[in-house]
Amino acid sequence: MEEEKIEDIEIRLLLEALYRRYHYDFRNYAQASIKRRLRQARERLGLRTFSAMQDKLLHDPAAAARVLRFLTVQVSDLFRDPGYFRAMREKVVPHLRTYPSLKVWIAGCSAGEELHSFAILFREEGLEDRTLFYATDINQEALETAARGIYPLERIAAFTQNYRQAGGKASLSDYYTTGYGGAVFDKSLRERVVFSDHSLVTDAVFSEMQLISCRNVMIYFDKPLQDRAVGLFRDSLARGGFLGLGSKENLRFSAHASAFTEFVREEKIYQRGKG
């Protein structure tokens, strides 16, 4: 037991050090999952304790950069959870059609899979020309991958299956060419996208979004940080705007639950109150 407590002290101090030295703030991440990633990072560094890891990361920016990338990287798929995109297409899009211009925020876009899914969906629904997408993440490398739009060919079979199940109207292969050892998604899909380094932990609101999709990002946050992020989404959404969460996330325990209504309950799509 004593051993456990020492480790928890060390982790707190390590996260504090990462924040002060590199301005990455994991202090309010869900303890169990950040601890697990830190243990993996420590094993890769070949270090025995988190205190030794703190020493290493404070004095070795290159090692710290690798660890920070590891702590912030996420992997997704195109049209992951096809039911979510089907609900967007069938239930949310009819509302979005009534707006002359649209702003959509993909918060925590990682390598851009979700962004490309929405760009394709909006093109097929004829909304693309009136839409501006904001794609944000704290991992610079992931943002660069998102902006390139190249994915390994071995992932395409799963993407294609998801696309069909999500109600895709064409063939996914219409949107990419093969080259550079991967599937290169058409750059016109990213013409109306602003990529930006943005942290849900420390940064401020965007304005007047009609749709925010933030899936499986807040599962890594503790409760107070989740409240901050959901507050940010509430303030960034236009009245009547939509918020999409991951399939196992919900606003039940959120401090801001009353600002939202369930719009498509089973797909975790919420609508900001109009009042």
């Binding site: 169990a32 999952s33 599962i219 890594y220």
Partner: peptide, 21 residues
């Protein structure tokens, strides 16, 4: 545990999910 998520326990007695590898 839900399919396609890791399920973890937080010290305070709540469930955390992750989509780590």
């Amino acid at each position: 545990a839900p399919p396609d998520y890791h399920m973890l326990v937080e010290a305070g007695g709540t469930v955390s999910l992750s989509r780590d590898e």
